[in-house]
Nucleic acid binder design. Structure first.
Lengths: 220, 220
DNA sequence: AGGGGTAGGATTGTCGACAATCAAACGGTT
DNA sequence: AACCGTTTGATTGTCGACAATCCTACCCCT
């Protein structure tokens, strides 16, 4: 036995790989909101046939990232202000539950891991690297949900975060100066360490409200 | 203008239709947990080609209802006790947020609609119709989330409810005598009407705990 | 008898081609 | 000039066929 470091070989399926590529492209804005996805063109640039590509697009359609219109094609969704509000409502629901799980589990260890991400944000701010800041911000929330160790919360959250990333890149200009958000993340982390669920709920809600304000024009 | 009652024609896409069929079949147990889905056979019985069927299966794979293994095929997921717990954890997260939205909106109207479902459950119990009882139970929770008017909560919840239904039908025997759950639903409804969010949270959590207890063998 | 290797059958993965549908441009008519 | 019908080009929807992979059963060898 050459050690336990040989994982079971799980070949990922092709549509799954393509789907991930598309998700990244949407999140990074390479595929703009409203844009139609030309199957022939996309399949060529991805080096696959239309079949697997179509299967991958169905996955994103199910996630709500693409909009499929019969005999017309699939389009990247356009997020309205209402969508942003709904997006953060859903994120709040998921992250709140995840935080509760972390608190019920090992809040100390979780807080330590989360602080690393806060430090990354801090470093990104020092360098004035807004892209890295956004990444660290996203990573913080993804880690929070991962720490819950709930497959379903994680899956739902992943979908929501692609949309979030899409909004952030689309409105990068308006989203620029969020240096003060650093403190918000730190407070959330410490509230988790203190196992103060009520306070975490409150802080998360505020955090989401801030983001919505920043990402929408008219506020509801 | 012949009235405003002509909706815009939205042709549903074929994979979407197939996906719904598959979801229903899985929820009703026609496709048993762990069973492999033979593409050729299924496509014949659905009257479509393998292409659209595969696209539909990718949708369910994304939802977590099917498990796709490369070069082996797709299988209906088998829900372990851990899965049941996670399932209800996720459901609690979604329904809790939905209830909060209802309370923030029009709790009176929502409670009225919910009471209808409770009455349906009551009627089903009178008739001894367990199938109808299960349906009404599911309908109650689906309505609760629909009332939130949150597209994302609704979409996530729909997925979770297919799994729930699958568990219920798989363990129908053990799940039989849930007459007392009627009161739980009524209490939840009235707590919503009273706009007592904390109480709704508590009742929902209890409700979920009950269900998990009933659907699992070993309790965590 | 046990183990390993090998052929067979079946299923999935991928591709290319054809049919169906749609949006836009064109041309004719009033 | 405005409107309507038609044609055209392009894109999607669907299908069948071929290649790749895997599981099973069988056979041979030790």
């Amino acid at each position: 036995m050459p050690g336990n470091l040989l994982r079971p070989v799980v070949q990922e399926t092709t549509p799954s790989l393509i789907a991930r590529q598309l998700r990244r492209a949407i999140g990074d804005g390479e595929l703009a909101p409203g844009q139609q996805l030309n199957e022939m063109e996309l399949s060529r640039s991805l080096g696959v046939s239309r079949g697997p590509l179509r299967e991958a697009m169905q996955r994103l359609t199910q996630e709500g990232l693409l909009l499929s219109v019969r005999n017309r094609g699939v389009f990247v969704i356009e997020v309205t202000d209402d969508d942003v509000r709904d997006l953060y409502l859903a994120r709040n629901a998921v992250e709140r539950a995840a935080a509760a799980r972390v608190i019920a589990g090992d809040p100390e260890a979780g807080a330590d891991r989360l602080l690393e991400k806060v430090d990354e944000m801090s470093a990104a701010i020092e360098r004035g690297d807004t892209a890295a800041l956004t990444e660290a911000d996203v990573a913080f929330h993804e880690l929070l949900v991962e720490l819950s160790e709930s497959p379903r919360l994680i899956r739902m959250h992943d979908t929501l975060m692609v949309e979030t990333r899409m909004c952030m890149t689309a409105l990068e200009t308006r989203y620029a100066s969020h240096s003060f958000r650093l403190d918000e993340h730190r407070e959330i982390t410490e509230a988790i360490r203190a196992a103060d669920e009520a306070r975490v709920d409150l802080l998360l809600l505020d955090h989401m409200r801030d983001a919505v304000m920043r990402l929408t024009t008219e506020d509801a």
